[in-house]
Amino acid sequence: MSERATPDELPAEIREAVPDWDDEYLDRVSDRLMYNYDLEKHYRAGGQRWDLYGEMRVRSQKQFFHPALSYADHEAEEYLFARRESTPTVAGLEHLVDLGHELADEHVVADEEHFGTDFTFVLAADELPDDIREFVDGFRDRTLLKFGYHGHYEVNLVVVVPEKETHVASEAADVAEAFTLWDDVTTPEEGFLSRFARRFWQ
C-alpha cells in the first residue's frame, strides 16, 4: 500500500472546515472522509436528523489541444447520510430507500453532463440482526435517467456495528470502507470517472 498523508498534512483551511464529533467513532470516520467530502454535523433531511452528512462531487473533462475545447464533460455526486440507530428495522431501511428517491427528485439535474448521483445511508447500530443483513446484502436500487443518456442515480445502504467490528453494505456502497475502522482501506485503480483521486485515509 502506498504511503498515505495524515490529517496534520492537510492545509489548515481544510482541517478547520471539518467539524468535531463528540461521538469518537464518527469523529474517526470523518478523518477518513474529509479528503473527499464536505462534511457537516446535525444535518436534517427528509424530516430526519443525521449525525454526519457529506457531499462529494467529481467532474471529468476531456480536452482537445486546449482547455477551451473540451468535450465529454461528466459530473458525479454523492450525498452521504450517517447516524447512530441502535435497532434498525427492515421497514426503516425501506423508508430510507424511499427517502433516497425523494432526494433524487430534489437534487439530480438530469442532462447530458450528468453521469451519476449516489444517495448513501449509513446506520451505526448495536446489533446486526439476520433480517437486516439479508435485506442489505446484495441490495441495489439504480435508476437510469432517459434510458441512461442522462446518467443514473443510485440508493445505497450500509449498517455497521462498530463495537462488534461487523457490517453489511449494499452492492455499490463503496463508502462503507470509511466506516469499517478495523479494516485497512484499499488503494483504487485509476479509471474513467474514478470516484476519488485518493481514497480514504488511515
Rank of each mutant, 00 (worst) to 15 (best):
E127C: 03
S170G: 02
V90Y: 00
H74S: 13
E24L: 03
G116Y: 04
H114L: 04
E113H: 15
A173M: 00
P7G: 12
D20T: 06
F179G: 03
V90P: 00
L157R: 03
G191S: 07
R28T: 11
D73P: 02
D118I: 00
T89P: 01
P19H: 08
A17P: 05
R59N: 10
R28C: 03
A5T: 12
R49S: 10
V18T: 04
D126R: 07
D184G: 08
A76S: 11
W182A: 09
E3Q: 14
V109G: 07
H114K: 04
S194G: 15
A110F: 08
Y79E: 02
E94Y: 02
Q48V: 10
V168R: 01
A178Q: 11
Q202H: 14
K146V: 12
D111Q: 00
D183M: 07
T89C: 02
L181E: 00
L10M: 14
W50H: 09
R199E: 13
E24A: 07
D22T: 04
T89K: 01
Y149T: 15
A172H: 05
H101E: 14
E16R: 14
P19M: 11
D184S: 09
D118W: 00
R49N: 11
Y25M: 11
A173D: 00
K41H: 14
E9C: 11
A124S: 06
G92F: 07
R44P: 05
E9S: 15
N156R: 09
L96P: 00
V185C: 08
